[in-house]
Design a binder for these strands. Structure first.
Lengths: 144, 144
DNA sequence: ATAAACCCTGTAGTCAACTACAGAGTCAAT
DNA sequence: ATTGACTCTGTAGTTGACTACAGGGTTTAT
């Protein structure tokens, strides 16, 4: 129930005041209340919510997608089936991201292990190789 | 050794011709050669490379970071120690992304399991809760 | 040999996600 | 009661990653 002004919240999260207002316009976060003069007041959840937003972004989710993720837990008890469905879709999305990252990681591990001595044949680019035996569909769309 | 023009490569990958030229300006890809009249000619590796680029992007890597990833395998046999070091850094980065995604996934799984019947207390937002017990540092920088 | 469909360089416009004012009101401290 | 740090709304500018011309040359098909 501790109430922060926007400046305090900004300092706490390392974000800019303008960024917080921008997130509000985008529907990602809202002040718990306002003072009589219109100052935004935030509670402790705001900081957590912002941390979530940044983390999700760094994982390649757009702000619209982050909003969708957040809306899942914001929805009170309405439309349980809809929430369940959306959650399932997001889980599938996340699983495929994890899968891709794991392929990328093992490619890099090969590189790491291989590098130190073996100066010789150029080893046929393990990083490209590792990510390609699978999924031969076109690759235009950014996020699945 | 099959040689494609830029238009063929674009069609093959589902990207636009302008995008391929843009990636070239950004140092992500280069034609294997040029015709006498200046037309770009690409080999089979180009398609794989582009698929890699798009996948890495969708995982939250910027084009600059993708360029770094690619440079790891492009480096012939020079500076093995440097490559090894860079690979290690990227692996750590990827591991933390995987970790974050796994936290996010388990939060969503909780939601999914919890939703169907339990209309009652609002369950205290599992998605935010799951992502926050750890890492309490500021969150400003996008990628770690 | 001429039109359609390519390709070239170069520059400008767009979209998401900020980031930075401008102009004005508010609050805390002197 | 006034200075300075804060806040407000609203709009404009910036950056990364495209995307779309303009103005011109090249290849392919007829």
């Amino acid at each position: 129930m501790a109430n922060f002004t926007i400046g305090k919240l900004a300092k706490q999260t390392g974000l800019g005041v303008e960024t917080l207002r921008y997130y509000e316009r985008r529907g990602l976060i809202e002040p718990q209340s306002r003072t009589g003069s219109g100052y935004r007041l935030y509670d402790d959840d705001a900081g957590r919510r912002l941390r979530f937003i940044r983390r999700a972004q760094s994982l390649g989710f757009s702000l619209d997608q982050v909003a969708e993720l957040l809306s899942l837990s914001d929805r009170p008890e309405k439309s349980a089936a809809e929430v369940k469905q959306l959650a399932r879709e997001k889980i599938a999305d996340i699983e495929s991201r994890i899968h891709d990252l794991e392929r990328m990681k093992s490619a890099l591990s090969v590189l790491e292990d291989q590098c130190p001595g073996h100066a010789g044949t150029t080893a046929e680019c393990p990083i490209l190789a590792a990510l390609n035996r699978q999924n031969q569909e076109p690759v235009a769309g950014e996020n699945g």
